[in-house]
Amino acid sequence: MESTLRTEYSLATVYLNTASHGVLPARTARALREAVDAMATGRTDQVAGFAKVEEARRAYGRIAGIDPGRVAVGSSVAAHAGTVARSLRPGAEVVCARDEFSSLVNPFHARGDLTVREVPLEKLAEAVGAGTALVAVSAVQSLDGRMADLRAVREAARDHGARVLVDSTQALGWLPLSAAGFDYTVCDTYKWLLGPRGVSFLTLPADGGDLVPAGPGWLSARDPWATCYGAVRDPAPDARRFDDSFALLPGIGTAASLALVEEVGTEAIAAHDEALARRFRAGVARLGYEPVAGRSPIVSVPGLGAATADALAERGVRVSARGGRLRASFHLYNTEADVDRLLEALPVAGRG
């Protein structure tokens, strides 16, 4: 893994903010430069570009443990969640965790005729009842890195005839997670999957479940290039009929990034990322803080916030602040030295 990463990364800062945006591998930057140059010199090959997006779909299916025929491509989690929201009957109950990321839950609120019930993350499974139509939850919380008990949620939903929508944006790329075990999953790829912003994936049952495509365009056809005029009368038989008109450049870049994730392997990435997070949790506790407990590589530290994040940035250490707390996140391009640099730059509790 180390030799591969040496050829892919040469960071100018201590970047500990993957939960906001991942760092593009060198191969992805090259692919994007070549595509932009082709577009700027009249050599654009859209057919080849779309083939790269199909390559990304297949790679995502392998990483997410699901048949690529159940994977739709789009540009945002919010749009995918909106497709799921459209499928619910008026008055249906949606249960979600409190303080979820807005892109996952706001489409259900925006409907205006659904009952959206927010509960503490640890109470999510027990909150599912006979009237619940859908549970929407992130596998890993963006705010503080807490992980949902997805097995308990799935079992509770099954017992009550509800569907489950999992946002894996803060999980896939480091957490081994099979999308095949859930009705729907959504994922933005610009964080732990290391792609450029602008590509997302929706996974759905083989039969499409209860979903109706929100805005099916020419790409929803079985053979888009042959039938791109007039109504689409022969839609794709698989998840491609739910494809949005995705952005080509991010799609090309995502294919390159997913290839790196597959080469290194999710299990190796998980071991690396979690070890760095453990090192940081232990170190920040020695400084007198109480980080949010857990095993995810997203670590939230109460008592440190935006002012600390700004001061760290001035010293070449990039983190973020969410919910009034410092949030550090560790990925495959980070090292123990990065963790130690962050710890050395933090004030002792009560002295900052």
Rank of each mutant, 00 (worst) to 15 (best):
E155T: 02
A349Y: 06
L88G: 03
A130S: 15
D67N: 13
V299A: 00
V261H: 05
A239R: 14
L114P: 01
G173S: 13
R27E: 10
P176A: 09
E126N: 00
V128R: 05
A345I: 05
G112K: 00
W192R: 11
V212L: 11
L312W: 01
L165M: 14
L276S: 12
D340Y: 00
P196H: 07
V119Q: 00
P90N: 03
C228Q: 05
A293G: 08
E274V: 15
R111W: 11
D99H: 10
T132N: 05
P90K: 04
A231E: 12
V14P: 01
S200L: 03
F330G: 03
A255W: 01
P213Q: 12
T266C: 08
R98V: 09
T169F: 09
P224T: 09
F246A: 06
V199Q: 11
T203W: 09
A231I: 01
N334D: 08
G195H: 13
A125L: 00
R163K: 14
P216S: 11
R240S: 03
Y184V: 08
A48E: 08
L342A: 01
E267F: 06
Y333K: 01
H80R: 02
N334Y: 06
A282W: 09
E122A: 14
S76K: 10
G22L: 09
H272F: 05
A12F: 01
S257C: 06
D183T: 13
C228Y: 04
L143F: 06
R318H: 14
